[in-house]
Design a protein around this nucleic acid. Structure first.
Lengths: 144, 144
DNA sequence: CTCAGTTGTAACAGGGAAGGTTGCAACTGG
DNA sequence: CCAGTTGCAACCTTCCCTGTTACAACTGAG
């Protein structure tokens, strides 16, 4: 599977902002987060922009600008993040319509569709069980 | 997510071969399956080649050549197919190593890793619950 | 022995998504 | 007015999937 790292980077950014705020800072910059994630600030801004549209973070411009959490980490789940940054489905159908004159070609898509929907629902439930506060706790618990 | 259709096409091919054999035929050709799936025979041969390596199908060359099932559809699950055609993980880590000098950069990968492993395990369990015989039954049950 | 039909596989092209990079307008507290 | 940052567009590179062509290898039928 050509998996991407969007969910990972988004969770990284949120955990970083959350910890930074716990340390008494008001806002975090994309520059700081990008350094921690070892990537480009624009990549972080793009992802945080999607999280802002989902109501998870807020941004401030001008002097003293940066990003802050819109909600507590405790009330934010990985499902919220996933839905904000991953639009597409986990499994894809045929790129071209199968032969509708063939019994298998005709019935395969509805059959697979309902299986895939069940799996995606399960994944969503798993993601919903993990809050970003859980993630940050695990991050801080990592052996040094 | 840049999802691919490998699992879908592989399941399509297996269901097609299974139905064809139930109708009394010995082997199916990649040409026939490709017509049903509306794709190129080489794409089918590539996927079936991976399924052969996994022990799900067999191939015969020469005159009267083609593909046949190596096991009953009842004993074949979507997990078997998934493992044969999808090597990678569902979610990816950072493409570059995060800043190990940062607390978050250091702890984020083990934290996300264990979450992802749990989710993948759940997905595997779901896939293992569905046999290819189930798939074929659903395919044939589709309204005309 | 030859031939036709099929697999096995390499090679390459095209498309699309993700990630990285640059550049710059817009904003705002000091 | 200025410095620091976001917002965003544009472009490039890389990677993977899919499709396609080409051809050698194989084998039962005749």
């Amino acid at each position: 599977m050509s998996a991407n790292s969007r969910l990972t980077i988004a969770a990284h950014a949120l955990a970083w902002i959350g910890l930074y705020q716990r340390q008494g800072h008001e806002v975090a910059t994309s520059e700081q987060i990008a350094t921690s994630a070892n990537t480009n600030p624009v990549v972080i801004r793009r992802l945080l922009g999607e999280l802002r549209r989902a109501g998870l973070v807020e941004s401030r411009r001008g002097v003293g600008a940066g990003w802050s959490l819109a909600r507590e980490l405790e009330s934010m789940t990985l499902l919220d993040v996933y839905e904000a940054v991953e639009p597409g489905p986990l499994f894809a159908m045929h790129r071209t319509t199968p032969d509708q004159g063939c019994v298998v070609g005709h019935g395969i898509q509805p059959a697979m569709q309902s299986i895939y929907e069940g799996i995606e629902e399960t994944v969503r439930r798993e993601l919903a069980r993990v809050t970003l506060a859980n993630v940050l706790r695990d991050v801080l618990a990592a052996p040094r």
